[in-house]
């Protein structure tokens, strides 16, 4: 029985390891190729590790292409969208959970129902709107349409509702204004929800592709994913440079992932649990 159990454990570890290798292999191959010379990268059979180790692909990507600029655009857009979403969601969630006004629940359901409309449905008219506003190839186009989040409003409202109302009365007696109450008392209490929203937002802003592809047309306004996409079309055979560019494009989120792994996985895990 004990022997049988050991074999079973062994099989489990083998299956899990195969899965892990399959998950990581594309990244390892990307890294390995990114340190090769172009000639070595297209050798067949390929080498597992670079025989001639070179960082030239990274230098090429960093100096010859507007990569530093792409990254800066992405950082600016991600931060600006995040700030916008947090402010609009906090205020709206506060109104929905702490105030009683006519039509509140109808309005809330109306907003929630927007969640089922995927972006491709309205992306073309949105493009036309942004074009008419004269925002093509500007930061406004990349940032402003995404500064309100239905999911953000929903999640913050759910958390704010759990805070006992007595707190407010106590704070009022101490002469605390409504806005100060939101930022100095409610905000610290709903920190986990704010972190979850921030994580989802940073990840989706950094990785967003279709929209920036549509509204940017100069190299100086392209976020990293669009820059990488065009680079991959132009330099489709310089594999080390392509892999170096991909590594750079995913690195910031991978670093964030290793710093905040627990919060990130928990956020995703909770998002799947139905209340």
């Amino acid at each position: 029985m004990k022997f049988k159990g050991r074999i079973l454990k062994g099989i489990i570890y083998i299956i899990l390891s195969i899965g892990a290798v399959w998950s990581l292999m594309p990244f390892l191959w990307m890294l390995s190729t990114s340190f090769k010379t172009p000639a070595e990268s297209i050798q067949f059979p390929p080498t597992w590790f670079p025989k001639i180790f070179t960082v030239q692909p990274y230098i090429t990507v960093w100096t010859k292409i507007a990569f530093p600029r792409y990254i800066m655009v992405s950082i600016i857009v991600s931060i600006a969208v995040l700030i916008g979403v947090l402010i609009t969601s906090l205020l709206a969630a506060y109104a929905f959970s702490w105030f009683n006004f006519k039509g509140r629940d109808t309005l809330f359901i109306g907003i929630l129902s927007l969640m089922i409309v995927p972006i491709p449905v309205y992306v073309v008219p949105l493009f036309i709107l942004v074009q008419r506003l004269g925002w093509i190839d500007t930061f406004q186009a990349l940032i402003i349409p995404w500064t309100a989040s239905v999911f953000g409003i929903f999640l913050l409202r759910q958390h704010m509702r759990t805070i006992p109302k007595d707190l407010f009365d106590a704070a009022r007696i101490d002469g605390c204004s409504r806005l100060r109450f939101l930022f100095s008392i409610i905000l610290p209490l709903i920190k986990p929800a704010v972190i979850t929203i921030s994580i989802f937002n940073i990840i989706s802003s950094w990785n967003s592709f279709m929209w920036p592809l549509m509204v940017t047309n100069s190299d100086k306004m392209r976020p990293i994913q669009v820059g990488l996409a065009y680079f991959s079309q132009g330099e489709s055979t310089n594999y080390p440079a392509l892999m170096a560019a991909s590594t750079i494009a995913i690195l910031p989120l991978v670093i964030l992932f290793f710093i905040a792994q627990r919060q990130i996985i928990e956020s995703y895990s909770r998002s799947g649990l139905k209340e």
């Binding site: 899990l16 899965g19 892990a20 998950s23 990581l24 594309p26 990244f27 191959w29 990307m30 190729t33 990268s41 297209i42 050798q43 067949f44 390929p46 990840i203 950094w206 990785n207 592709f209 994913q225 669009v226 990488l228 996409a229 991959s232 594999y239 392509l242 892999m243 560019a245 991909s246 590594t247 494009a249 995913i250 989120l253 991978v254 964030l256 992932f257 792994q261 990130i264 996985i265 995703y268």
Partner: peptide, 29 residues
């Protein structure tokens, strides 16, 4: 360890992984 390994592709951008997978799928190399 396993959870980290499996989760890494989730947070990486679809553009970067498409570029990498296109290279993996290359018919000749």
């Amino acid at each position: 360890f396993f959870r980290t390994a499996y989760f890494l592709p989730v947070i990486t951008s679809i553009v970067a992984v498409s570029v990498v997978w296109k290279w993996l799928y290359n018919p000749q190399r």
